[in-house]
Amino acid sequence: MTTTFEPATSREGPAPRPPGRIRSGVRAGARYPYWFYLPAAVVYLVLFIVPTVVSFFFSLTRWRLIDWEFIGFENFVMFFREAALVTGLVNTLIYGVLTSAAKVVLGLLLAVLLTSNIVGRDFLRSMVFFPVLVSTVGVGLTFEALMDPFGGVINNALEAVGLPGPGWLTNPSYALLSVALVDIWKGVGLATVIYIAGIVSIPREYFEAARVDGASAWDNFRYIILPLARPATTTVIILSLIGGLRSFDLIWTMTGGGPGFTSDVIASVIYKQYQAGFYGLSTAGNVVLFVVVTAIVVPLFWWLNRKEAEL
């Protein structure tokens, strides 16, 4: 759910002071011994790095945990040929891009609203942020009830204003989008507080100077907030893409990938294949997810940070 990005590893703060450098070697080792890394490294390597590395091998096998049989790229071929699995791949991209884009736009708008001088600002901020902290399963089950096609709260409200309510989770064309909508509802608060932090860090003088020049509210937004909130935009895009592409709990709670497999994503395919005992195929799904996430997030992160440096 939560992660922090220190854009670029070069942001070590004040450069290490020369004295520390000069007295390196024995003294630094005595003060900051490498074995301090050891406990974290052991847990991290054994339970995260090793599984990640061996996943590349086991994705090429028919795997039953007790033994394995090397079958080359058969699992991957299956992944790109089987309709259910291809749907999962496409849906993952739709879901990730959609939720991420919506969180950027809505998060920015809400942040502008919630940094203006409206009444009850702090309360509104808390209200928008609170869903971030709530159990995803709980949110999923709640919205499943709210989106009930027969007399659920949302459809009743739509009916009251004369609109036909769709079968949010039961109609194959809407199921994935409905889950994405709930994901946006739950996650937009995080985007909002990230943008708020970005906006309040903009020096007041810019707005003062803009007022002297007779800038309108739109000018303030377009020429001050938008460019100077860029680090926040980078963080929001990267965080919500990582979260969205890996998303599992909400989809699994609300639709279980259904109706049929129309709202399956890679993460739910991984779980289904695991349950069915196709461990090799499930692991191939993990490798596909790994490739999708890194192929999108890493270049994007690099590109966004480079553009930031140019400003």
Partner: peptide, 17 residues
Amino acid sequence: LSGLIIPPAVVPTIWVL
């Protein structure tokens, strides 16, 4: 940083555990 980005590999983690 890769710990933030890479989705954990499920069955291999079970295998290690």
